[in-house]
Design a protein around this nucleic acid. Sequence first.
DNA 1: TTGAAAGCGCTAACAT
DNA 2: ATGTTAGCGCTTTCAA
Lengths: 367, 367
Amino acid sequence: MKRARLKDVAEAAGCSIAVVSHVVNNASGNITCGEPLRQKILRAAAELGYTAHYASRALKKQRSFTIGIYIPAPGNRGGGLNPETAILEGVERACRELSYDLLLISIGNGTPAGECANKLNARRVDGLIVLHADGDSEWVGQLADSDKNVVAINYFGPAQIDCINFGNAAASAMAVVELAKLNHVKIGYIGPLRDTAPEDASIRLRGFLEGCEASGIAVDPAMVFDADFSGTPRIERTDSGDQEAAETIASIITAMPPDQRPTALVGHSDASLLLVLRELMRNGLRVPQDISAVGMDDSDLCRFFLPELASVKQPFLGMGEEAARHVIEESEMRPVKGAAPLAKRQRWLRISEPEFIARGSIAARDG
Amino acid sequence: MKRARLKDVAEAAGCSIAVVSHVVNNASGNITCGEPLRQKILRAAAELGYTAHYASRALKKQRSFTIGIYIPAPGNRGGGLNPETAILEGVERACRELSYDLLLISIGNGTPAGECANKLNARRVDGLIVLHADGDSEWVGQLADSDKNVVAINYFGPAQIDCINFGNAAASAMAVVELAKLNHVKIGYIGPLRDTAPEDASIRLRGFLEGCEASGIAVDPAMVFDADFSGTPRIERTDSGDQEAAETIASIITAMPPDQRPTALVGHSDASLLLVLRELMRNGLRVPQDISAVGMDDSDLCRFFLPELASVKQPFLGMGEEAARHVIEESEMRPVKGAAPLAKRQRWLRISEPEFIARGSIAARDG
DNA sequence: TTGAAAGCGCTAACAT
DNA sequence: ATGTTAGCGCTTTCAA
């Protein structure tokens, strides 16, 4: 059986399509309609299983009621449930709540610029969400300049684009502060184990340093294992040998005299920290008795270690929701006709607030 | 600046929109056109940045050139990069290759039946891919009956729907066979640690048993830790206490006289197996010297253990691609007008072929 | 309170 | 070889 059109419902109810259109949308134009007819129409519509043809409505309204999302490559943080999935879930949830559809423009594959601009231009999507866009790439800036409706998630480039970012600095600072509360004063930092680090790694290092300062903790360069930090021990880093780097770092720490060793470690990521911890434990150190540990991102890995790893969590789902809400709201503000292009407002910029997740890998230090 | 329409290009090129339509699609109706005009049109189109309005084309062609995907809840396998992401990536890739768009109907949230049927009905999507649909649910069957274009991935219910499934039985059988090649004859099995197991868990157990039979290995019920197997040791399983179950199983194995212990373990999942392995190692057993291990799904967790866990991998990405290809192909076979509803063909059914990933957790047994 | 009708931008059959 | 035109199904203004 063919699907029902407005016309079919109108015939079944014995009236014109205009009234039907009005009734099923329960608002449009200046049409009103008597209760009996109204009921008749609703019944007919239900009976025929009427649903407005999507393309037709989109054509008429000049809106697709769809937003697009672009995800460069999932799981780049090395292990664990990737943030992308949680963000996507949040985006999808917000879209559904606001009755928008979600178009997955690209995931993992690499054809950003053209595709995105194209979907936008073909009126395929009313707005665009871009995840982890490379700060160096030009296309993001071009989108922003062309006054398209775009919001980036975790973008650290120069383009003046609306965006919402992980609270990277706040997260690592928070880890330090929580450890300080437990009387730790010698706190080490485990940066990226590879030589190709994600863009936000340096921000996390900065947060660590800020956290130390705020807590009145002296930073000891000998225990800050991050290539971006001056005075750090020289560690050989390659593009694949996480394990070797972890072993080197662990042996350096193990070799320190017990009273000079860090009593706690903050990791730039759960994965890096866990690799180092595993080596430390093989060297005979106990977690958390000898050394406490706090990771970053609260990935699935945390709960697969013994003791479970404390971590700082980003509100991925919430960020996705918020981004979607913003882009949709923005889309509805824009005039559909070529009216005034809506004076360029302030750039929208949000930093998410991380949350500390306490677990077995931390213990208080005797005062 | 407003986006260009067919009409704008036609004016710029000084011809009618029909010719433009023909040229930009380089095929349509029985129109031909001289080379000079052709060039002029192409230039004008490029200059104006012309792209066909999506909704308009969809309305006219009665096709959305979009397929929808429904993902109930990601990451249910407990840890590691979830298969859903890889499948999604494959689906997206195939869609792009075939110039289809991908609509993410739902991920993680729970509103399947209505939403899916609706998108289909509103001509929002030309076809639908459903991931991990619950075998008990009715809505999948209803979709199938209504002659909609749907393909399920990893569906084990009764509905006569096109689908492509993980080769679960083949995977666990493969693990056994590979271990047998290494002269293992006492092989244990680690089933789900929780009392709520995924639907395909029992198939994996069956595969294990088949693998044993094929390899001439006697199954010892005392080392088959799966609640579905008669004769298995009684293990207390709850909905959350994986760790306790793992400890119990490990202590049972450790308590066995060394010459009666399994020399190898097959896990129904990487996660379950790793939890048990960790406890075994804490009890003093060495992997792989004392006991070899092969997991399932090749999740990210595998590479986070020492030794790295051998596993059997499902071709997630390829399955996604194949599903998408099928649903698109099917969509293009269907008549757009109400012609003959295309006699119901054979049910399309594919089982994916798993691949063995050898890693440090396996060693040969002395002959 | 209801109906008629003009398009939204595009494709394709039909005319020239 | 090119132009004209009738819709696809819907929204909405205008007329009755």
